[in-house]
Design a protein around this nucleic acid. Sequence first.
DNA 1: TTCTTTATTGACTCGTCAATCAAGAAAAAC
DNA 2: GTTTTTCTTGATTGACGAGTCAATAAAGAA
Lengths: 194, 194
Amino acid sequence: MPKLGMEPIRRAALVKATIDEIGAVGNLDVTVSNIAKRAGMSSALAHHYFGGKDQIFLAAMRHTLTHYGAEVRDALRTAKGHRGRLEAIIHAGFTSSNFQPEVIAAWLNFYVLAQTSPDAHRLLRIYQRRLHSNLMYDLRPLIGDRAEGAAARLAGLIDGLYLRQGLSRTQAKQSDATRHVIALLDTELGGRPQ
Amino acid sequence: MPKLGMEPIRRAALVKATIDEIGAVGNLDVTVSNIAKRAGMSSALAHHYFGGKDQIFLAAMRHTLTHYGAEVRDALRTAKGHRGRLEAIIHAGFTSSNFQPEVIAAWLNFYVLAQTSPDAHRLLRIYQRRLHSNLMYDLRPLIGDRAEGAAARLAGLIDGLYLRQGLSRTQAKQSDATRHVIALLDTELGGRPQ
DNA sequence: TTCTTTATTGACTCGTCAATCAAGAAAAAC
DNA sequence: GTTTTTCTTGATTGACGAGTCAATAAAGAA
């Protein structure tokens, strides 16, 4: 019963299944067969639509990044003022959806992949640049020349706390991470020029 | 020509070879055979001394953590004053030896492993606790109640900047990371109580 | 209708790898 | 000098997995 136009549906199902499977296994030692089974099709079909395991991973990574980007954009839409927008960016990184085990697993494994896969590295770069430029856009009007350093520190703290929070088995207070970054934001904005 | 007392030598060689191999491959998809070959022995011998792949990884992780711990201890030995000790701790995390590709690869993969391996998770916890308590020891006398939050932020920033720096293909300025953490330290120490 | 395109899979190939084991060889113990 | 312990490996097993392919089936085009 081949209905036409299945490609986008199958691809989306495979991407979702890939992220879920990485989350379930914890690493990239996932089999195409299992991903395909999870997505309700044969492994041959997965190969047919993606060509190979690597490209499935890349698509999953792209999806994760896109999802994060959309969350930031949504948060920015309703935020008011530079300060409000900065807080929105920070909050978006620590949404509960970002702390789903499969999302954490995806990020960690993408970091590993970025070491050796130029494509993965490029995607990660895009995320980093977007975060940096988002921060700069609202920091520069507030603190001028100090914005560059402040953005580097804020981005670093966001990534670092996400890493720590994501690996922490106690799901205590994802709000703590947010609070810490906001605290840094306060000192960066209010601090006397060094 | 079986000389006696080979066990510690073989184990050390295997641990070293494991880290190098992980660095060369970039992920944990390394074979016991290749590790053993790199260490100059048969794969059977690797199994003989370690029992299995997992235990080899654990030993490699333990070694990496131990090495980091030793570096911190050395740095603290000559540091003077609370402020000097805090700077020493920060510097130790960004030593050039920590930015060898195989060390970066080891850390990233240990993060991945920590999701699913209770042993790996435990080891990572030890690292995190040690860093936290090292920071607290010198922060508390300086800023009292604010030490807890400051330690969390400093530790987060150290991890985050290490991650970013380690993944950055340009090896520009490992000193930038240090400078950023020191800058945070400055604001944490000098900031007015919130 | 016949042909082409799209969708789909089971079966198969080819390779890899963790783990085991039997056996050899040298040192130490008795 | 025999026995035991330590060290070592080649060969083997058993399993698993990526990617291919031929074949089937339906939908649309000619």
